[in-house]
Simulated scan of single mutants.
Amino acid sequence: MATQLQSVAQAVRALREQLLAGQLFQQLPAALDHLMASVAVEPATPVALPDDDLAALAKMHTIRQRVKKTATPSVSDDELTFLVAHLASRSPAVRDKGAFFLLSDLFQMDAFTAAQVSWLFNTLQQPDILFAHIMEPQNDAVFQRSFAVMLLSGLVYADQNRYHALSSKQYSGLLQRMCVYVLLERDGRGYVDGSGWAHAYTHIGNLADELTQVTGLARGEKIFLMASILAGWQRMTVPLVYGEDQRIAAYLVNLAVKHQFYADSLVMCLTAWQTRLHDVRPQENINFWNAWYNRSRLLEALLMRGDLPKVVVDYLQKIIDLY
Results as ranks from 00 to 15, higher is better:
residue 165 A to Y: 07
residue 190 G to L: 11
residue 291 A to N: 05
residue 44 A to E: 12
residue 245 D to R: 05
residue 55 A to L: 05
residue 63 I to M: 11
residue 67 V to D: 11
residue 273 W to F: 12
residue 231 A to L: 04
residue 242 Y to R: 05
residue 287 N to I: 08
residue 30 A to G: 10
residue 21 A to D: 13
residue 3 T to W: 09
residue 186 R to S: 15
residue 52 D to S: 11
residue 204 I to H: 09
residue 126 Q to E: 14
residue 253 V to W: 04
residue 30 A to Q: 15
residue 144 Q to S: 09
residue 286 I to R: 13
residue 9 A to H: 12
residue 232 G to Y: 04
residue 296 S to W: 08
residue 16 R to S: 15
residue 185 E to H: 00
residue 13 R to N: 08
residue 253 V to E: 04
residue 167 S to C: 09
residue 128 D to H: 15
residue 270 L to S: 07
residue 51 D to A: 15
residue 166 L to Y: 03
residue 68 K to C: 13
residue 128 D to T: 14
residue 311 V to Q: 02
residue 126 Q to I: 00
residue 250 A to T: 10
residue 169 K to W: 08
residue 77 D to P: 01
residue 240 L to R: 00
residue 228 S to F: 02
residue 158 A to W: 09
residue 219 R to C: 03
residue 97 K to S: 13
residue 252 L to P: 00
residue 293 Y to F: 14
residue 291 A to R: 13
residue 154 G to T: 07
residue 234 Q to K: 12
residue 17 E to M: 03
residue 241 V to Y: 01
residue 7 S to N: 03
residue 27 Q to N: 05
residue 293 Y to S: 04
residue 293 Y to L: 08
residue 115 A to Y: 11
residue 83 L to C: 06
residue 28 L to A: 11
residue 118 S to H: 13
residue 127 P to C: 06
residue 144 Q to L: 14
residue 11 A to M: 06
residue 93 A to N: 08
residue 64 R to S: 15
residue 148 A to T: 11
residue 218 A to Y: 01
residue 163 Y to F: 13
residue 191 Y to G: 04
residue 189 R to S: 09
residue 71 A to K: 14
residue 176 Q to T: 08
residue 93 A to D: 13
residue 266 L to C: 06
residue 114 A to F: 13
residue 43 P to R: 07
residue 231 A to H: 05
residue 275 T to A: 15
residue 66 R to K: 11
residue 26 Q to E: 11
residue 23 Q to F: 01
residue 131 F to M: 10
residue 10 Q to N: 03
residue 297 R to P: 00
residue 259 H to C: 09
residue 78 D to R: 15
residue 179 C to W: 06
residue 262 Y to G: 02
residue 289 W to V: 09
residue 307 D to L: 02
residue 103 L to E: 04
residue 92 P to W: 08
